[in-house]
Every structure is written in structure tokens, then in C-alpha cells.
Design a protein around this nucleic acid. Structure first.
Lengths: 339, 339
DNA sequence: CTGAAAGCGCTAACAC
DNA sequence: GTGTTAGCGCTTTCAG
């Protein structure tokens, strides 16, 4: 059973390939009769256009690239899902690549995607990416790019973000609303923008509620791990018994803090309230369950793809584009670690 | 800056496109001098062959499809990672699709991948897939397929699996080695092969160690959730106080059981030892930490891709293939929920 | 050692 | 309404 092509259908019907092609695409200058005949045969032969030929001719692959820092991660996995499901709906397929949070890998993968002529690229920048030549490379190749989640202000283009400052503000405010007076923050490493923004949101909330900011109860996590959260909890238990609230950079750290404090006989939430960030699966299984900030990866992926598609269409039609930054809403999820 | 093509290089060097093409591919019938000249110019012009044209000519896309029941899942996410990283190494890119554990979606996605002429497909069957016409469809299109994780014995082809019976046997044996005499099993739904196999392994271990099997302490989870684990724990706490060990189908259920039993004042592992399955992140953050079975998704993905590549090559070279089933080893991870 | 030519399968401008 | 033609960019005989 060799492949059925336009030519075969044309020969069988004694038409030209051009007519067959147009008939299948419902061109207005083809007679109804011919269209019917052609479609009937194409159907019965189960004709499928050859995508290689179409791509060559149309100069588009209907495939986009998606670069993710880390696939095994609830939030990013949901982004993959949002992107692929939405793309599918619009006739696009997605090639997913993991950058391992490395600038070097990220750069290589962009080249790889470009060399395969993808129609667009979705990328979340690695934490150690400080140089944007690789992104400019994409622009130079006139391929649409949309930055999502970890973006850079110094790059022009569509962007999808969450408002980390606002989310952190709300998390901290929730602790304040629970009656906390002395609220610690467990932050991430110094550089990434998300860390900085969540720290800023935390400080703003304190200020707006007349709580003096005290840098001695801001703890920098050396790694975003459960163990590191526990280590910091020990420090709190030993040296900072007056703390009555903790806002942690992410759920894994928060879980470590929760378990670590409990080991020292500190009651959650009676003695200390804790809130995390991201709404990972594990925040639903701790005892008590962990309050957190929900950020919908699916929605972010969905919006990211839609913006990319918009840019693809704009470029195709030669429209000029005004770049947008879309914000995905976040929400405080109240569970039992805050009262 | 319009695209540089073979033709441009040929004209610039006053050669034919054929010669340029061959020079770049180091054909033996091209003079060294010409090769050097061509390569130098191609390099300086940053020539990249047009993949659409190559695909059309060579009838291969260098892209494979990967169908996953559920992306947001530690194990499957690791499989994606193993597949894509390995594929990348061999010059292939991966299109990932989620079947939502649905036969209907799975079937559609296969058609989609086939219509895009992928060079091969990797698939883990949805739990409710009982009909294999869609897999036969792939074979009919002469596209290589490899089944991984959730396979079917009635399909011919390469397969990658873990030995669920053996793994469950070892999990149960570990409980026995810990001194447990009355071991419950929290199983999954009736049908999927994994559920059945883990149940069989459990029974075999009991038998080999002279423990009488008792169906009244086999609990069927209606869903693989934390809450369901808790519900079953309550049942155990109320009606089966003599149970001193629990082997759960997966870590999420095990975590529910652990928390549920603790709520009833049952000490883990002193009163009851618990072991889960899959080694999810959450098994490292429970109190006590959860013993479990590790199954390497990365390795499974890696092996799956390699087998697929083997089949692709075999078909290309017209070799006949003898189908293999590769087993990925599992390991008992001893943590603090078993003693 | 090099090149002419054919063709992969499809599309679109243009002619009839 | 339909067909002719001319590619898209690459690879591979086969002839010279």
C-alpha cells in the first residue's frame, strides 16, 4: 500500500493535481461537482497530504518549540500540558526541551529548534541566564518568541507572567490577617527575579500594616529543598522563638519548615502559621495541610501559546505588533497551616 | 538576510548544487580541495540545510512522537525527560502528547502523529484501552512503535516494562523482613495490569513466607488519591487493629494511609509499617519518611528511545527484527515508615 | 572528479 | 472551471 498522493487522485479522476488540490481546499473557482467527486475519492482512499511537501511549499512546520527549565516539577509540567493541549486545538504540535536551568543548554536548544524551522518558540529563562544574545538570535531569524514565567525586562516581545510581588504581598497579608505579628521570610537565592519580587512583596505587606521589617528573620535558602527548609526551621526554633508566621518561597521549603518546627514541639498553626508558594501536590498531604499560593501552570501555558499564535499570524499577515505582557492571576489557598 | 541555500553556495563557487551537497557530506568522490572550499564558505555563511526539503527527499522527519497518559506525574515526567534527552543525543526531537488516560484521545493522537509523518511512536497505553486497532494502524503505516510501562501482551513489538510482580513481591518481603505478620494490601482498580501484577506479587510473597492470604485485608482504592488512602486507613483503624503492615499500590495512597493511621494514634512504624510504590517526591517529606519502590522513569525513557531507534534503523536497512522486552530494574527504598 | 537532470508532493500564479 | 507551469531545497543516480 504505497502512499496516496494528489497525483494519484488526479490520474484516477483524469484531472490535474492543481484542480484536485484546490478542490480539497474548497477554492471558489472549482465546480461543486468536481469538488464532490474529488473529496469522495480522497476520503475513500484515506488521502492525507504529505506534511513534508506542505512545509517545504508553505514554509511552515506547524510545530513550535517549548523550552522548560525543569520538566519534573508540578508547575512546569502543567505548563507543558497547557501549551500542548492548546496547540493541538489550533493544529500545532509541540517539541518540548529541558534546559536544566542552564544558559549553555538553553542556547544550544534554541539553535536546535531554529535549525528545524519551528514556527515559534516559547521559553522560560534559566536562572543563570544573564545574556540575551540567544534570544536576539531567534528574533534575527524572524521566528516569533514568547517569554513565560521567568522573563527578562530587557527583552522586547510578548510575555506571560505572574505578579510575584502581588502574590507574595497577599501571602504575607494572609499571615497578618491571621494575627501574626512577627513574620519570617524564607527566600531563595539572591539573583533570580522571582526571589527578589517575592521578597519585595513581603516587605510591602509588612510596611502597609505597620510591621517593622527585620532583616534578621529573613532566611536565605541555599537550595530549594525539604532539608534546607528543615535546617532553617531548626534555626528558627533555637534562636527566634518569637516568630509566629513564616512565608516561604516555595512549598517544598515550607514543608521542610513545617516538619522542622513540629520536631521542636512548635504547634502549627497555633504557635506559628506557615504559607508556601506554588500549590504543589505535597502541600495537600502535610499535617496540617499547607496554605499556599496557587499559580495555574495550565493557564499560563494556554495563554503563552495563544500569544505566540497571535504573533505568528501577525507576522504572516505583515501586521505590525504591539507587544503585550499578560498576567496570570494567583490566589491564596487557605488550608490548615494558617489560622 | 534571506536564507542561504545549496544553490547560493554553488553559484558563489561556480559549482553545481550536487557537488556542494556531496562535499558537505564528505562523499569520497569529491576532491579534498573542493570540500575545503565548500565547507569554508558554508561555515562563514552559516549554512543550515532546510529540514523541510531534507524530510521530503529522505522521507524522514527526525521527529518521534511520545504519548503519555499523564504528564503531571513524577514518574511520567521523568520518562519524558529520559526520552527527550536521549533522542536529542541521537539527533531526534520529540513531540509529546497526553492521552488523559483515555482510549479515544489516544487513538486521535496516534492519527495526528501519523499524519505528521513522525519516524516512530512511543506509547504507554491508557488504563481503559482494551482494543488495539489503533496500534495496528501504526504498524500498517510501517511506522515503528515501542510500548513502555503500560503495555499489552497481545501486541507484537518491542516493549519496556518493570516487573510489577517482582517489585511488589520485594515490597511485601521487605515488610515481612521487618517482622510484619499481618500485612494488608491497598490495591488499585480491578482492571489495569499493573494493579493485577502488584496484587499477584503481594500474594506470592505471603505464600513463600507461609503467611495465609486473607482477602478481607485487601482494600480496593476507588481512586489513587490521598483522601482515599485516608479513608482506607480509618477502616483499618476501626476494624482491623491486628494489621501490622501495609503495602500500598502507590505513594499517594500510602501517604494517605500513613496520615490516616497516625490520626487514630497508630504509631508508624512501631505499630504498623507502611511501604508505597514509585518513589514520588512526597514520600521524602512525610513524617516518618515513606519506604517505597523506586522505578526509574528516566531510564525507562532512555531505553524506550533506544529500542525505537533500533527498530527505525532495522526497518531502514531492511533487516528483520526480533522483538525484545526490556525490563527496567526496581529497588526497595528503605526509609522510616518500615522498621 | 564534477554536473545535469529528475523528482520527493504540494501550491499558486497565470493562462486558457 | 480547469490545466500548465514553475518552483520550494535537497539528494542521488548516471553520464561525462
Amino acid at each position: 500500500m504505497s502512499k496516496v498522493t494528489l497525483k494519484k487522485i488526479a490520474e484516477a479522476l483524469d484531472l490535474s493535481t492543481a484542480t484536485v488540490s484546490k478542490a480539497l481546499k474548497d477554492y471558489s473557482d472549482i465546480s461543486l461537482e468536481t469538488k464532490l467527486k474529488v473529496k469522495a475519492l480522497a476520503d475513500s482512499l484515506n488521502y492525507k497530504p504529505n506534511p513534508f511537501a506542505q512545509s517545504l511549499r508553505n514554509k511552515e512546520s506547524k510545530i513550535i518549540g517549548l523550552i522548560i527549565p525543569e520538566i519534573v516539577h508540578d508547575f512546569f509540567a502543567n505548563i507543558i500540558l497547557g501549551v500542548t493541549k492548546t496547540a493541538e486545538k489550533y493544529g500545532y504540535l509541540v517539541i518540548t526541551l529541558q534546559s536544566d536551568e542552564s544558559y549553555g543548554v538553553e542556547k544550544k536548544q534554541i539553535e536546535l529548534l531554529l535549525s528545524r524551522n519551528v514556527d515559534g518558540i516559547l521559553i522560560s529563562l534559566a536562572d543563570n541566564t544573564v545574556n540575551y544574545n540567544h534570544i536576539k538570535e531567534i528574533k534575527r531569524a524572524r521566528v516569533p518568541v514568547v517569554l513565560y514565567d521567568k522573563i527578562s525586562k530587557s527583552i522586547e516581545g510578548h510575555k506571560i507572567v505572574i505578579d510575584d510581588q502581588k502574590a507574595a504581598y497577599n501571602a504575607t497579608k494572609h499571615l497578618i490577617d491571621c494575627g501574626c505579628k512577627r513574620i519570617a521570610h524564607v527566600r531563595g537565592a539572591l539573583k533570580p527575579q522571582t526571589t527578589i519580587d517575592r521578597f519585595i512583596g513581603y516587605k510591602m505587606a509588612l510596611k502597609d500594616h505597620n510591621i517593622t521589617f527585620d532583616n534578621s528573620i529573613v532566611f536565605e535558602a541555599k537550595s530549594l529543598t525539604f532539608e534546607e527548609g528543615k535546617r532553617i526551621a531548626y534555626e528558627i526554633a533555637l534562636k527566634h522563638r518569637d516568630i509566629d508566621g513564616v512565608f516561604a518561597f516555595c512549598d517544598l521549603l515550607a514543608t521542610g519548615v513545617l516538619v522542622g518546627l513540629k520536631e521542636h514541639g512548635i504547634k502549627i498553626p497555633d504557635d506559628v502559621s506557615i504559607i508556601g508558594f506554588s500549590n504543589w501536590l505535597l502541600s495537600t498531604v502535610t499535617t496540617p495541610t499547607l496554605s499556599t499560593i496557587n499559580q495555574s501552570g495550565f493557564q499560563m501555558g494556554e495563554e503563552a501559546f495563544k500569544l505566540l499564535l497571535e504573533e505568528i499570524d501577525d507576522i504572516k499577515k505583515g501586521r505590525d505588533i504591539k507587544y503585550k505582557t499578560v498576567e496570570i492571576p494567583t490566589k491564596v489557598i487557605v488550608r490548615n497551616s494558617t489560622k
